[in-house]
Amino acid sequence: MLEALICPVSQRPLEFDPERMELVSASARLAFPIRDGIPIMLVDEARKLDD
Results as ranks from 00 to 15, higher is better:
Ser25Asp: 11
Leu42Met: 10
Met21Leu: 15
Arg29Ile: 01
Ala26Met: 12
Ser10Asn: 08
Ala26Leu: 13
Ala4Met: 12
Ser27Tyr: 09
Leu5Lys: 03
Lys48Ala: 13
Arg35Trp: 02
Pro8Asp: 08
Asp51Gln: 10
Phe32Val: 03
Phe32Cys: 01
Asp44Val: 01
Asp44Arg: 02
Ile6Val: 14
Val24Ser: 07
Arg29Leu: 13
Phe32Pro: 02
Asp44Gln: 00
Ile40Ala: 13
Asp51Ser: 11
Arg20Gly: 08
Glu19Val: 10
Ser25Ala: 13
Arg20Lys: 15
Arg47Ile: 06
Pro13Gly: 09
Lys48Val: 13
Arg12Pro: 01
Phe32Ser: 00
Ala46Gln: 02
Arg20Asn: 06
Ala4Glu: 14
Ala46Gly: 08
Leu30His: 05
Met1Trp: 06
Pro18Ala: 01
Pro13Ala: 09
Ala26Phe: 09
Leu30Asp: 01
Phe16Lys: 11
Arg35Ser: 12
Ala46Pro: 11
Val9Asn: 09
Glu3Ile: 11
Gly37Asp: 04
Val24Tyr: 00
Ala28Gly: 01
Met41Ala: 09
Lys48Gln: 14
Leu2Pro: 05
Pro13Glu: 04
Gly37Glu: 04
Lys48Arg: 15
Ala28Cys: 04
Ile40His: 12
Asp17Met: 04
Pro8Val: 03
Asp51Met: 07
Ile6Asn: 09
Arg29Ala: 10
Gly37Tyr: 03
Met1Gly: 14
Leu14Met: 07
Glu45Asp: 13
Gly37Lys: 07
Pro13Gln: 00
Asp51Tyr: 06
Met1Phe: 12
Met21Tyr: 06
Leu23His: 00
Phe16His: 14
Ile38Asp: 06
Ser10Val: 05
Leu5His: 01
Val9Ile: 09
Asp50Ile: 11
Pro13Val: 05
Ala4Thr: 14
Ser27Lys: 12
Ile34Lys: 03
Asp50Tyr: 04
Ile38Ala: 13
Ala26Gly: 07
Arg20His: 12
Val24Arg: 03
Arg47Ser: 11
Met21Ser: 15
Ala26Arg: 15
Leu49Pro: 00
Pro18Asp: 00
Ile34Met: 06
Met1Asn: 12
Asp17His: 03
Ile6Cys: 13
Glu19Cys: 10
Asp17Ser: 09
Leu30Met: 10
Met41Lys: 10
Ser10Gly: 06
Glu19Arg: 12
Arg35Lys: 11
Glu19Lys: 14
Leu14Thr: 02
Val9Ala: 10
Asp44Met: 02
Leu30Ile: 02
Ile40Trp: 09
Glu3Val: 12
Leu30Tyr: 07
Asp51Thr: 03
Asp44Asn: 01
Asp50Met: 12
Met21Glu: 15
Ser10Tyr: 03
Ile38Thr: 11
Glu3Cys: 04
Val43Tyr: 00
Pro13Leu: 06
Asp50Lys: 12
Leu5Tyr: 04
Arg20Ala: 14
Pro39Leu: 10
Pro33Val: 01
Ala26Asp: 06
Pro33His: 07
Ile34Thr: 05
Met1Arg: 10
Glu45His: 10
Ser25His: 08
Ala4Phe: 13
Ile34Trp: 00
Lys48Phe: 05
Pro8Ser: 03
Leu30Phe: 03
Cys7Tyr: 07
Val43Asn: 05
Ser10Lys: 05
Asp17Ala: 08
Glu19Ala: 13
Ser27Trp: 05
Ile34Ala: 06
Ser27Ala: 15
Gln11Val: 08
Gly37Phe: 03
Arg47Thr: 07
